[in-house]
Design a binder for these strands. Sequence first.
DNA 1: ACTATCACG
DNA 2: ACGTACGTGATAGTA
Length: 378
Amino acid sequence: MSQDFARRIAGLEQTIWRDVGHEFNIGSPKQLGEVLFEKLQLPGGKKGKTGAYGTDASILEQVSPLHPVPARVLEWRQLTKLKSTYADALDDNIDSKTGRVHTSFALAATATGRFSSSEPNIQNIPIRTEEGRKIRRAFVAEPGHLLLSADYSQIELRLAAHVADIPELNAAFQQGVDIHALTASEVFGVPLEKMDPQTRRRAKAINFGIIYGISAFGLGNQIGVPQSEAAEYIRAYFERFPAIRAYMERIKTDARRTGYVETIFGRKCFIPGIRDPNPARRAGAERQAINAPLQGSAADIIKRAMGRLPAALERAGLKARMLLQVHDELLFEAPEAEVEATAQLVKDIMEGACAPRCEVSVPLVVETGWARSWDQAH
DNA sequence: ACTATCACG
DNA sequence: ACGTACGTGATAGTA
């Protein structure tokens, strides 16, 4: 794969240099900015306090209709990323004793209680594009075994419905309805049976925004509408689900008073900037205060499941081993003959991981899949 | 050591 | 009256 990427990278490099008229380092944001916005005269302008041109993917996408080079640079970036960060680095990290890649998990490194993963990071293995999936396809089970993936469905949005106590959303999750379609229907006034993909996609972005501590700027940026229009969507959302606004105000007030917020199990997440006199920094801290109980509670729940699973597997006489955690997903290696029984046990333990210390007002749903490769297990 | 970029949930 | 969606880590270039 590394060699295939290298060949294609070299081809793109030649084409880009030919189109520009001279050689330069495509990987240098400084040189690339000068080529695109001075030599080729593409519209872009400066940004940032360093005075450099911005050349990130969203900017290159905006100018790609005007010239062939930006799209080729995007493809060059994708392939160099996959080659250096994944194909080459994963190979370099194969343990000579075990023949496997062994990550390091940090259990007390993040502000919210999530794990982090390093040397190599296996929590950011590609999946969103077809080229990237080729990397994930290289993660395979031993002969006679399968990889079993089990992931919580929309756990943070479910926890938002729980902690904010939103009657309509709680009911929707209990009935198993399409939550983004429901949001779209309520916010945009489109009947469920007339839902279209674009409207549903916008509602999905709003739901992500809720989890992140929504802002009109961020939402508008995400779905490509003016900030004023995004503000209107947010207003409509709060009008339809007033409990969410009440929760957000309450969490900010509590955080300002105590300096921290809590997960559903009472673990504290400290919010250092919550009293910052600078309005921008304070607003950032307020978004953290809204997000941390959701991301942090989800982290608590999966860790409770992880703590129980090895003994539960042993007790059931199953040989599966837990290999990886990716925030809302656990990956196991199981003997082929045991994979269905293992999936059922894993699902039950993960879905019941809140008890007995907490009861949540929404069902937690875990989806499982299995195959030889991690890619196919999804 | 810092910045820009991009991979993931 | 400010800059922004939340949380991470790796790589390459720049200063």
